[in-house]
Design a binder for these strands. Structure first.
Lengths: 190, 190
DNA sequence: TAAAATCGTTGACCTACATCAAGACTTTTA
DNA sequence: TAAAAGTCTTGATGTAGGTCAACGATTTTA
């Protein structure tokens, strides 16, 4: 259980000596059911979580009141809103599980403690944060392309996504309707 | 010159005691001309910069080879790509000045030193980084709305942008053609 | 296990925005 | 300061993807 997180830290901060006991002390295993929310717009993000098993979507509410997916996460991903978590301000992000999901969670207070205490965890956090920023920017440039191109790029990047995420959810992420995605898939095959 | 940066740090980390001499030691004033690039895709981001006076655009190249603006920056904003700067990996961002621009720049090495040395600068960096992440995510949800709505939202957020940035550049940011923006503006007024 | 809800597909029709082209105005360059 | 380049506008025309509606298949709920 904890090993998955420790492995992930090791992968991102090579040659480090992270203490297993410290991890067990600061993180709590937690189970969420499909459709449950981890985070809702307007609330303060009290926990950060690391996915052991399962998957989730992040979405926002557009000015017209529609849900728009901004991303998905699977095993070995972090969830929580950095901005809200760090500054303890209301978040704009919604996170909902698409499968029953097992997490390791950490409170903001524990996160600060661990951040102060462990050089290794500091580097790990730092590294992940830069990666996350990059990912969200990448997404923006893709949006100037046709839905077809965006869909292709998505499948190239995450070939397995079709097995885990419904077309409705993928369509929302691509900023098109489920009908449009259906037609696009049809024309793609034939 | 240096005061603008010091003021900005004070505003973001209230009640701090930042040493003016330290700032002068670590940062270098630099002048860029309109149309010059601060950062180009594929290169490693060697400098971070703080805008004293002037303005810039960030853009990316889409898969179809077109420039797509991802944002603008003015006085008191930072430029540079965190991911590239921190990990010294090639950037995906292009930054070009839209006016002659005065900056205070800092090298990656100096940034690390100052980050280690100054608790205050650490907090400042940390805070700005969270803000930046938020801004880019915000942008994503807006893209599901009509061009008209996106334009309105942009003007509400940055009413002065019209005086500083050409319609071409704004159109690119809104993911529409300059023609479409022109027509949209016309129908808005009448 | 029956009823209700959700999902993916398809058809008919509509509209927001793209593309191409051309002219008037302004800014940059030599 | 004349020529060249870029900007904004407007017109004509094309198209990707939206909306609404309906149906069978699957999943969820009671």
């Amino acid at each position: 259980m904890y090993d998955k997180l420790i492995d992930h830290i090791r992968q991102n901060v090579p040659g480090t000596s992270i203490d297993k006991q410290t991890i067990e002390e600061y993180f709590t295993p937690q189970l969420f059911e499909k459709k449950e929310h981890f985070l809702k717009q307007g609330y303060i993000c009290k926990l950060a979580g690391f996915v052991i098993e399962g998957c989730y979507r992040n979405y926002m509410i557009s000015a017209e009141g529609k849900e728009v997916n901004t991303g998905f996460g699977f095993e070995n991903w972090w969830l929580g809103d950095v901005s809200s978590f760090v500054n303890q301000t209301p978040t704009l992000i919604n996170t909902q599980f698409l499968e029953n999901t097992r997490l390791l969670t950490i409170t903001a207070k524990n996160h600060i403690d661990l951040f102060e205490k462990s050089q290794c965890f500091r580097e790990y956090t730092y590294k992940l944060r830069s990666k996350a920023t990059m990912a969200s920017v990448l997404k923006l440039s893709e949006l100037s392309e046709s839905a077809r191109t965006r869909y292709k790029v998505l499948l190239e990047k995450y070939p397995k996504i079709q097995q885990r995420v419904s077309q409705r959810q993928i369509a929302s992420f691509l900023h098109i309707t489920p009908e449009a995605l259906s037609r696009l898939r049809k024309s793609e095959i034939s």
